[in-house]
Design a protein around this nucleic acid. Sequence first.
DNA 1: CTGTTAGCGCATTCAG
DNA 2: CTGAATGCGCTAACAG
Lengths: 333, 333
Amino acid sequence: MPGRITMMDVAREADVSLMTVSRVVNNKDGISQATRERVQDIINRLGYRPSSIARGLVTNRTGTLGLVVPDNANPFFSEVARGVEHVAYAEGYNVFLCNTEEDRERELAVLQSLEEKQVDGLIICSSRLDDAELQSAVAQHDAVILVNRVVERPGVGMLLNDDEQGGRLITQHLLDGGHRKIGFLSGPPSAFSGRLRVQGYRASLEATNVSYNPDWVWHSPPMVETGKQVARDMLTAHQELTALLCYNDLVAVGALQACAELGCKVPDDLAIVGFDDIPLAVLVTPPLTTCHVPRYDLGSQAMHMLLEKIEGASQGDEPILVQPKLVVRASAP
Amino acid sequence: MPGRITMMDVAREADVSLMTVSRVVNNKDGISQATRERVQDIINRLGYRPSSIARGLVTNRTGTLGLVVPDNANPFFSEVARGVEHVAYAEGYNVFLCNTEEDRERELAVLQSLEEKQVDGLIICSSRLDDAELQSAVAQHDAVILVNRVVERPGVGMLLNDDEQGGRLITQHLLDGGHRKIGFLSGPPSAFSGRLRVQGYRASLEATNVSYNPDWVWHSPPMVETGKQVARDMLTAHQELTALLCYNDLVAVGALQACAELGCKVPDDLAIVGFDDIPLAVLVTPPLTTCHVPRYDLGSQAMHMLLEKIEGASQGDEPILVQPKLVVRASAP
DNA sequence: CTGTTAGCGCATTCAG
DNA sequence: CTGAATGCGCTAACAG
């Protein structure tokens, strides 16, 4: 096969220099309308496409970005991804969507790979790395936005759902409903947002003089299946509970299923609250009371922040807090 | 800032030539154990990372792949994506996950962009392009796998869920249940698989001497909201229907909601059947009868096929058919 | 307005 | 076992 069509081919065919072709391709001026059109025609006729990797080698910009998420099949992250990609696409970027499958090792590997690919910028959602790992990973890149994770490092942008406040909101709602024995399935230990939500829960309890009971806080991987299993164990071990907060809606749905199996009625025997307000939340029976997080907007806003950083127009690095909103439905009226 | 660390830096520091460093980096032999270790140490100490774009320029391989889907937030595609990415990652590839948002123009743009990025291979899921567009888009790439779409072009691999058979299975199930007036919400007109499913539906009807009524086949975008709207309109216009086939589970869930609003009981007043068997299918009430499609496996198998193609080991281009399986649940017992 | 020169960071020859 | 030369396809800086 004849190999890729290069600028050289176009230049030869048009009987001009490489530079002239380059100028046409990049819409730079300093070229007569006539040559521009002639060259453009030849480009079209030959089907020439610029090699963005050759270009990247000289410009040091690849036009690609990285987006790292724990699990793209989780509706929360896939919606964040949509927001990111929509904006990125509008600005002419392509994005590597990288799934870490909730795995630390894999997150590290992905981050290294993105570095080798020389992405122009990076958004990391809900990193599962510990602080030290994240610090040094982030140090390799010069434009980074963290979503729902904090790290001490100048130059890193942060966009955070106010998880502690979210934890307070849902806890307060249950307290207002008269609940005093409230369990919490708090997500994976590595989840930063889980820790914050528990803090909010605890703060809210203590503000009402209800004592915090660590036995009522269990970890669970953030998926339906695991939520179901852990909820079953927890509810069996702690039959005194009258309400259950869940790390996210997926876990809450799992808890709903566990209740069905245990013959425990929601919300009469047990109130259940989720987090995120994914579309699924209104599709289950009973629909979930939850804390609404603007997933798509989180993605698009993170992307806007990243663009500012890439273009060097970043307005300082104060973390930006997004306020979640309590949504009351039948699972915890 | 001092700029990126290059091979040159390592070579200078180790007092060897570029080539020696290159050999160490790429694990080639023809190097003494001693130098290898010494160079490796310096690489680690300096934090050198090879530039995959520079490498790509000379090797003509980028280590990146493209995956094009209509909507990553659709659980069907996000699961396919997981399958693809899992295998890709294991083989050292990164993948551009590109959402077309069900938009033809955008799909074309994405495909062109992937060409400029010089991906080593490409998987296109459920393309919404017409045949001519797809043909010429595909012609630009040398390793392409189509999922759930057929195109006439040598060299293109195809992995297909047997949608016609799926259409037959679900239709037959309803016929067996005594239904004779069966509507079909068949998805977007651009959806190849929708057309096949309708064919199966029609074939199944006619094999039972039930006449095919085109008034009972309506299009609907493949999402819950739109499914709900179209279902409402259709059921209002055609109250004679006793069963409704849906393009996918999302549409079926929408139909379920429409029924709830219309005061129509499922399955007593109307049987509803979905397609895909996404996790959501068992979470709604009543759980959906549907046609199971192995989404994750579709992704991982497509990826394996793509790898074979990239490595030139492709075993011919017979489309590979995957058989869907009827799953009977309460929405259409 | 257009062309020439140089070099991005690396791997592939081919010599030592 | 190691190194020197060459070029991938393109753009930036300067010349004309």
